[in-house]
Each structure stands twice: as structure tokens, then as C-alpha cells.
Design a protein around this nucleic acid. Structure first.
Length: 205
DNA sequence: CACCCGATTATCT
DNA sequence: GATAATCGGGTGT
């Protein structure tokens, strides 16, 4: 059997960051790690736009956040709390200076044994249910900052051949920020066991 | 070069 | 549910 893998094109990322964040739900991230293939389905995202105080690009371009200002369809990887890395996908409309989608949680699909090794954890619901956890399970580090995710390589995103229900996508305020709480720019699958946190405030889509 | 703090997680009780 | 751990980047002296 031949599995047709459609890699998400650069134009997919060249749209309003909030729309991209919602549309990334259900897509599959492919990570090639030491001759193994690790995959997971995106179940939780957050949008960060440049004119938004919660966005790293809000105060302008620096060495750390320069990827957010670069070509769409590339990764922005940064270190958080000095402990772990977070993965963003650079996406925005052409007239916008910077923006990206934070990947907050994945449902593990292939290569679960490797993820368990990298995390030193075994339970499947504790492998990728958090932005710092999924980068650890995928072996993603700072040197992946700026990598192109629109072509076959170490890290890229593909369409999901399975039919995913668009009906139970929910939105909520983003997690772990102090400004911009009024914007419902976190998207996740309701009742999915792999999302990072339960939230009391839920907006139906 | 010192200081501050964060798009978090693990490990308690 | 509360809290400690942890450190690189940003800012200002």
C-alpha cells in the first residue's frame, strides 16, 4: 500500500495567523529522528500576532525572535523558563510583519517507543500534552530554529488522510500569558485526552 | 555585568 | 492546587 503524503504548502501559512492556528488542528507533524520516523496529530494550538502584547515579536525584532519575522512555513524554536523548548510555525498574511502558531499538544501516532525514551515517561497521555513536552518527545532543540517545514526533511507538516471532525473544535484564551487574555486564540479538540489543560472557559466554534 | 522574569513542568501534599 | 526548579535573553547600569 502506498501512502500519499501531501506536505502542507507555503501558501497554507501565508494567511491570517488565527486562521492558520485553527486549520492546523488535525494535521500531522513528521519528525525524522536518527533513522526513525516520529509522527503526531496536532490537537492544540495558539496564535500569536505581532500587534499583540503576548507575542514575542511585539517589541520588535531581536536575535532571539528573528524567525518570527522570516519567511512563513519555517519553524520558530525558543527556550522557555530556561528548561525546555517550544515549537512555533511562522505564519501570517503578507502585509503583516511577524506572527506564528505555537504548537501546544499532539496526539502521538508513530514512534511512541522513541518518545517514551526521550521523555523518560511511558504513559501515552503524558508524552506530548504540553508545548515543552512535545519538543522533548520529538528531540527538537534550539538548532531547529528557522528550519523549513514545507519540504521533506527533519521536520515538516502533512495533511491528515483520516477524516477529522471539525465540529468539536473549541477556542479559549491562551495559556500562561498576562496580556491579551481577551483574545480567544487558543484552539483545541474538545474532550481530547491529549490537550494540555482543561479550561473552564470554552467558546464553541 | 547584574538583575528580572517567562507562550512551563515535575513533584510534592 | 501549590510550589520549587531552572537559565537564557532582554534591559539597563
Amino acid at each position: 500500500m502506498v501512502v500519499i503524503m501531501t506536505v502542507l504548502s507555503r501558501t497554507f501559512y501565508q494567511r491570517n495567523t488565527v486562521d492558520v492556528a485553527r486549520d492546523l488542528l488535525g494535521k500531522i507533524i513528521v519528525r525524522k529522528y536518527k533513522n526513525r520516523v516520529l509522527t503526531g496529530m496536532i490537537v492544540e494550538t495558539e496564535a500569536y500576532r505581532v500587534n499583540d502584547p503576548a507575542c514575542h515579536a511585539y517589541k520588535g525584532k531581536t536575535n532571539r525572535n528573528s524567525s518570527l519575522f522570516g519567511t512563513v512555513g519555517h519553524a520558530y524554536v525558543y527556550m522557555s523558563y530556561g528548561i525546555h523548548f517550544c515549537l512555533n510555525l511562522v505564519s501570517r498574511e503578507p502585509e503583516c510583519a511577524a506572527g506564528g502558531v505555537l504548537i501546544r499538544a499532539l496526539e502521538p501516532l508513530e514512534g511512541i517507543d522513541i518518545m517514551q525514551e526521550l521523555r523518560s515517561k511511558d504513559h501515552i497521555t503524558n508524552l506530548m500534552n504540553g508545548p515543552g513536552k512535545l519538543t522533548q518527545a520529538f528531540g527538537i532543540e534550539r538548532h531547529h530554529d528557522g528550519i523549513d517545514v514545507t519540504q521533506d526533511g527533519e521536520l515538516y507538516i502533512i495533511e491528515n488522510p483520516a477524516c477529522i471532525s471539525q465540529n468539536d473544535i473549541c477556542a479559549s484564551p491562551r495559556i500562561g500569558i498576562s496580556q491579551g487574555l481577551e483574545k480567544p486564540w487558543r484552539f483545541y479538540y474538545a474532550h481530547n485526552q491529549y490537550v494540555s489543560k482543561k479550561q473552564s472557559i470554552i467558546y464553541e466554534q
